[in-house]
Design a protein around this nucleic acid. Structure first.
Length: 889
DNA sequence: CTCGTCACG
DNA sequence: ACGTACGTGACGAGG
């Protein structure tokens, strides 16, 4: 028997299902059954099957409510919120699906999935077989051995982290069995295992690194001083019991053995039917289970609902005649950066026909009627990613107007946290029949290739048809959720404004960057020599691994913080190490300069177009969950400003016309003003109405002093408190930021809330509202769903709560500047100004302005920004002008 | 291709 | 008791 080649995969069913349920949006199928946990579990399962190629597979479930653990400790898993019905209903369906996979599933009254997995893995490794355990629960790490590897899910369910005993040693400095001791000391809230109060992971690890086991900690408790020692003595029984509870029982009286869980693969027809029933069309597609049989009559109809007419084969007349009846359009282009993408094809849907043409055909004379239609603002278009489309066409010299409905933008507005806005992804989420993924048609990475004309025509036709099919439910949903205005009046028009700014570009002087770069270069080389001399040998300073070895092993500096893979050497750590060794300061400076050199000097130089001297960034409008923009290729929203050396980079950003100037205008304290408005707090509102310095005002109230008693340190701390409030305050976060104790931070927050009770009320209300509705909104009706607001996991829930507090603030600020951009665009156009809007940096707009328009613009820009949205407090924008972006400060 | 790091609001 | 500030994108290192 060849046990050596055997590989068992043992899956902790409950743990994965729970994870998937909270990690995924609440997808439902057309009959209303929520299927997100099943979907998440299945994607995880497919990934593991593919990557591990197991010979045996088992999914273990917890059975019933009471286990043997309750015999010794009645409160085991007490205080847990009961399983939500939307989750509960998914278990039986999942179990059916596993049958279709031909995968065994075990559960046994009185035992948990952990115990079943522990028992089987013990058997298997004794027989010399390899085992992979899959769970979301760290406890399972105790099973790791030479033969047993544990995969823990990280974010979501398909990302896993692989733990061998060595990996556990590196991560925690513990052996697998010590994981039990870890939990014995720190406990586990979700299982209601108490541990020792006041001992968290940090303290527990320290104790275990010193003493090895719970028992040994308890017998050496005399050596442990202070409160910690007292706590351990007081709760020693609890620690012993907790350790017992955390120990996986590996002798479950199972009726089956390893040989009963062999996995020989699934039957395609059976699995295909099961997945179709669940409407997991993307999975059917991915596994290529579609061919066998199409059970859903509707699918047949939809799939055959159009005829592809190739303009390159049939000629233009059909398309030209159909244009007045066009229902949707899709322009395919390859390349991530739309300023450098190559158009490959166009598809237009009209009735039962989809007309397709190779992009190159747009250059022919026969294309004129079609080009005119593309540029006709009176010909409304429904499409997908108009922003990209407009740019691609614009670089071909083709105007694109009449953008009526953008399915990608609609999907973003409907759920800004959705990271898969691919057409196929949207179809699946909407429960519509799916199309081929781009990856399956084009391949990816090095294998990326545009397919032959026929295949391409089929694919882009399917995409254009998909857009048509998506639109009705999307537009209905937009109305239903009151998002008509946000979508039609704000986001869609803005995409046009953005495309204009990007196409315009901003002039950047290569020579200025190069001069700065050679200065940096000299200093980098000097510093490198110094650092190598101080270390005593040459090494790669840019390698965190090598740097860690030098600092902490060769030079013996104290380890402040560790990362998953080794010593942390980030700026926060280095700042703490500065007093110990001269080398540290040099490293900090070296880091700063190499960052400037690689990201900003070299990075920006690469992006300057030699023919125009301009940089064209690409603002992404469908990425940020709060409604902000982001910027790529290159990112022009993180050009240095805080440090003088980096700030010099801004001198290279200049007007594109001789004699013009750069004008920059930024909102003053926009987030705090938004907070004042939505919280209605009288004190905060008054501060802004009176035009006070809000950080000084905060310092006065928090420290209970008069204005002239506020020193710079108090103001600095008050400013940090204000930031904290906007981020969704926590004492821990504030304490980290200010380098103070948590107690002190908590005191600041307490004082703040006393001074600004309206803000406190807002924070409580918004979290409560999120719990009730499952989402929060901005002033313009932008909505963000917070699935994890009810999670039992403290971390997930706390994160959701902070998000609930922060998103309406950050998101409303984003709404406001977007409105201002629309208004500025109109103002420039209506007044016939030559000035151009170039950049947006979250609370700042940058323009290039001819001399003769300076006076107008210096008044117009801040006026428009201030009046973009009427709040209960004034909005203020500060404006400044210079020869370059550096001087416009 | 992921991780650590660091630039911005 | 738990343990993180909110939102992004780009780079070099190292598998």
């Amino acid at each position: 028997m060849s046990n050596k080649a055997d590989k068992l995969v043992l899956i902790d069913g409950n743990s994965i299902v729970f994870r998937a349920f909270f990690a995924l949006p609440p997808l439902t199928n057309s009959s209303g059954l929520q299927t997100n946990a099943i979907f998440g579990f299945t994607t995880m399962l497919l990934k593991v099957l593919e990557e591990e190629q197991p010979t045996h597979v088992l999914v273990a479930f917890d059975a019933g409510k009471v286990t043997f653990r309750h015999e010794g400790y009645a409160d085991y898993k007490g205080g847990r919120e009961k399983t939500p019905p939307e989750l509960k209903e998914q278990f039986p369906v999942l179990k059916e699906l596993l049958k279709a996979f031909s995968i065994e599933q075990f559960e046994l009254a009185g035992y948990e999935a952990d115990d079943i997995i522990g028992t089987l893995s013990l058997q298997a490794e004794a027989q010399g077989r390899d085992v992979v355990v899959v769970s979301g629960d760290k406890d399972l790490l105790q099973l790791a051995s030479d033969r047993v590897t544990v995969l823990l899910t990280r974010k979501g369910v398909t990302e896993v982290e692989r733990y061998s005993p060595t990996a556990i040693g590196e991560r925690y400095g513990l052996t697998p069995t010590q994981i039990i001791d870890l939990k014995g000391l720190m406990g586990d809230t979700s299982d209601n295992i108490p541990g020792i109060p006041g001992v968290g992971e940090k303290t527990a690890l320290k104790l275990l690194h010193e003493y090895g086991t719970v028992e040994n900690v308890l017998s050496h408790v005399g050596e442990i001083k202070g409160k910690l020692g007292e706590k351990i003595v007081e709760h020693s029984d609890s620690a012993r019991m907790s350790k017992q509870l955390a120990t996986i029982f590996r002798e479950v009286p199972l009726a089956h053995t390893v040989d009963d869980v062999t996995y020989k693969g699934y039957d395609s027809a059976t699995l295909g039917t099961a997945l179709r029933k669940l409407e997991f069309k993307s999975l059917v597609e991915r596994l290529d289970l579609g061919g066998a049989e199409v059970t859903d009559a509707e699918d047949v109809e939809q799939a055959a609902a159009f005829e592809v007419v190739r303009v390159d084969v049939e000629g233009w007349s059909g398309l030209n005649d159909a244009l007045p009846r066009a229902e949707s359009i899709y322009v395919e282009a390859v390349g991530e950066n739309p300023h450098q993408s190559e158009g490959v094809g166009v598809a237009v849907v009209a009735g039962d026909q989809v007309y397709t043409l190779p992009y190159a055909l747009l250059k022919s004379d026969d294309a004129k009627p079609f080009i005119a239609w593309l540029g006709n603002p009176e010909a409304p278009k429904t499409g997908y990613d108009f922003h990209r489309t407009k740019l691609v066409l614009a670089w071909s010299g083709i105007a694109f107007e009449g953008q009526a409905f953008d399915a990608q933008m609609a999907a973003y507005v409907l759920d800004p946290t959705d990271t898969d806005l691919s057409l196929n992804g949207l179809l699946v989420k909407m429960g519509l029949s799916s199309i081929s993924s781009d990856e399956s048609v084009f391949g990816k990475g090095a294998k990326f290739q545009v397919p032959d004309a026929n295949k391409l025509a089929e694919h882009i036709a399917a995409k254009a048809d998909a857009i048509r099919r998506l639109k009705p439910s999307q537009s209905e949903k937009l109305e239903e959720l009151g998002m008509h205005h946000l979508f039609y009046e704000l986001e869609q028009p803005l995409s046009i404004v953005l495309a204009g700014m990007e196409k315009q570009g901003v002039s950047v002087q290569a020579s200025a960057l190069q001069d700065l770069g050679s200065q940096f270069e000299r200093r980098i080389e000097e510093m490198m020599t110094t650092i190598h001399r101080l270390a005593g040998f040459e090494f790669n300073i840019g390698s965190p691994k090598q740097l860690g070895e030098v600092l902490f092993e060769k030079l013996g500096l104290p380890v402040i913080k560790k990362t998953k893979t080794g010593y942390s050497t980030d700026a926060e750590v280095l700042e703490k190490l500065e007093p110990y060794h001269e080398i540290v300061r040099q490293i900090l400076q070296y880091r700063q300069l190499t960052k400037l050199q690689s990201t900003y000097i070299e990075g920006l130089l690469k992006e300057i177009r030699p023919e125009s001297g301009k940089i064209h960034t690409y603002y992404r409008q469908t990425i940020a969950a709060t409604g902000r923009l982001s910027s790529q290729y290159p990112n022009l929203q993180n050009i240095p400003i805080r440090m003088e050396e980096g700030r010099q980079i801004r001198k290279a950003f200049v007007p594109s016309e001789p004699g013009w100037r750069i004008l920059a205008a930024d909102y003053s304290q926009i987030e705090l003003r938004v907070l004042a408005h939505i919280s209605g707090d009288d004190g905060l509102k008054e501060a802004f109405v009176k035009g006070l310095d809000v950080h000084t005002k905060t310092a006065m109230d928090v420290f209970r002093v008069t204005a002239d008693q506020v020193d710079s340190n108090m103001r600095r701390q008050a400013k940090a408190v204000n930031f904290g409030i906007v981020y969704g305050i926590s004492d821990y976060g504030l304490s980290q930021n200010l380098n103070i104790t948590r107690r002190e931070a908590a005191e600041f927050i307490e004082q703040y809330f006393q001074a600004f009770p309206g803000v406190k009320r807002y924070m409580e209300t918004v979290v409560e509202q999120a719990r009730q509705d499952g989402y929060v909104t901005t002033l313009q009706g932008r909505r963000r769903y917070l699935a994890e607001i009810k999670a039992s996991n403290f971390n997930l829930r706390s994160f959701a709560e902070r998000t609930a507090m922060n998103t309406p603030i950050q998101g409303t600020a984003a709404d406001i500047i977007k409105l201002a951009m629309l208004r500025m665009n109109e103002a420039i156009r209506d007044r016939g100004l030559k000035s151009r809007m170039l950049l947006q940096v979250h609370d700042e707009l940058v323009f290039e302005v001819p001399e003769e328009e300076l006076a107008v613009m210096e008044k117009l820009v801040p006026d428009v920004m201030a009046s973009a949205l009427q709040l209960d407090v004034p909005l203020v924008a500060d404006v400044s002008v210079g020869a370059n972006w550096y001087e416009a400060k």
